[in-house]
Design a protein around this nucleic acid. Structure first.
Lengths: 213, 213
DNA sequence: CCTTCGTTAGTCAAAGTTGACTACCCGCCC
DNA sequence: GGGCGGGTAGTCAACTTTGACTAACGAAGG
């Protein structure tokens, strides 16, 4: 699973109706071009693809008011909303090591109910533990570790990473159960998009924190 | 940077001369089809592409001795070896969060001298710390954290991950400085490929530890 | 006025990735 | 002896990703 569809669906959904450039701007505002594959080509491609698949509805719109080529506005469909929620759930639950998917999942988790989010995160921990024991049982050879040479360091890395993530996830669960943040159905949601005309404080310039090169 | 080129170059190099299927088998032996994008299509594509770019030399060979279509054998060129070492260095040094690249880097680090490996890993820690402070300084707003709502959890995740990785990297550095493993120029290298006819103990079957779904 | 620069909005070719598919040969079982 | 299961070796079309490029307009300066 790549993060691009989730990010684009999430951005369009928060706007209600958005054209590609707006989505692109939101993702830049979120720093997503730094920590995910949210580059112009990918964004426009995802929009077109998802429109073709019925997840988005495309409105052909007259030339832009502010220069540039005519633009297409997109709205999320019911099917798209369903897919969006499915992707958020999957990204929260499944133990994989992709930062971009994890980050997007956290950004969008508040679109789910609080109790469900907690349940999904617990399932995530369960899966990471399952995976952890599969690594330790399967790859540590009968003749004892050391047999593997430096290759054993790879398993070591995986186990270390899995542990660190489980620990962090547990902390997040605790904070959520402690009442932090505002989840679906709990009142005014947190809005993280730029409204028309608002300027982006994180606009391209000097180094960003997401600058992972 | 994707891991496929590094993995394929590394596999061909360890063999001296290998055809696609052999590379494919080695990568399966390493479990790479589970934790990286080392699928048949990607492997053959990478081989052809790198042959076209002069990193590998392709020998057209008569039909296989053991059934199947004729096969092409590849040998790494000087340019390919240079690129391989460059990729190993980059993968060891650069702080990014891709497990597949990290794992491959560790698997191949012993092709570099011990001292260089340690230096590169120290640089890696330095970069991850630099990145960590960029995150904390830049994204924690002046009005204090909490301003960000649940979005702050993303930064929290990044910082937590960076710390865990730095800790693990430091442990690895200590072990290497303590004399563990056999590095370039230190005698008989560790060999991790299957010789012709040897069977793969990790052949496809029940779950592998790399099964990250 | 007219050129140049930045912003808006998006396209495109080339490269990489995926997963299913082909084709060949060997051994084995009935 | 024929057919079928499994291993060998690789191809292919569809899709995604990348990074550079285009084109239109407004503002600003000379």
């Amino acid at each position: 699973m790549s993060a691009i569809r989730l990010l684009v669906l999430g951005a369009v959904r928060q706007h209600g109706r958005a054209h590609g450039y707006q989505v692109r701007n939101d993702l830049e505002y979120w720093g997503a071009h730094e920590w995910s594959n949210a580059k112009p080509g990918s964004i426009y491609h995802a929009l077109k693809q998802m429109a073709k698949q019925g997840l988005l509805h495309a409105h052909e719109i007259a030339p832009s008011t502010a220069g540039g080529p005519p633009r297409t506005e997109y709205e999320i469909t019911d099917q798209g909303t369903e897919e969006y929620l499915r992707l958020v759930r999957e990204a929260l639950t499944s133990y994989d090591q992709k930062m971009d998917v994890k980050s997007a999942a956290i950004g969008f988790m508040v679109d789910l109910p609080r109790a469900e989010t907690v349940a999904l995160l617990k399932e995530r921990i369960r899966r990471s533990e399952e995976w952890r024991s599969a690594v330790t049982e399967h790859y540590v050879p009968e003749e004892g570790p050391g047999q593997l040479g430096h290759i054993g360091e790879i398993m070591n890395l995986w186990v270390h990473t899995a542990d660190a993530e489980a620990e962090w996830t547990q902390g997040l669960i605790d904070r959520i159960e402690g009442g932090a943040y505002t989840f679906a159905g709990e009142g005014e949601p947190f809005v993280g998009v730029l409204t028309e005309g608002e300027e982006n404080p994180y606009a391209t310039g000097e180094r960003h924190p997401g600058d992972v090169r």
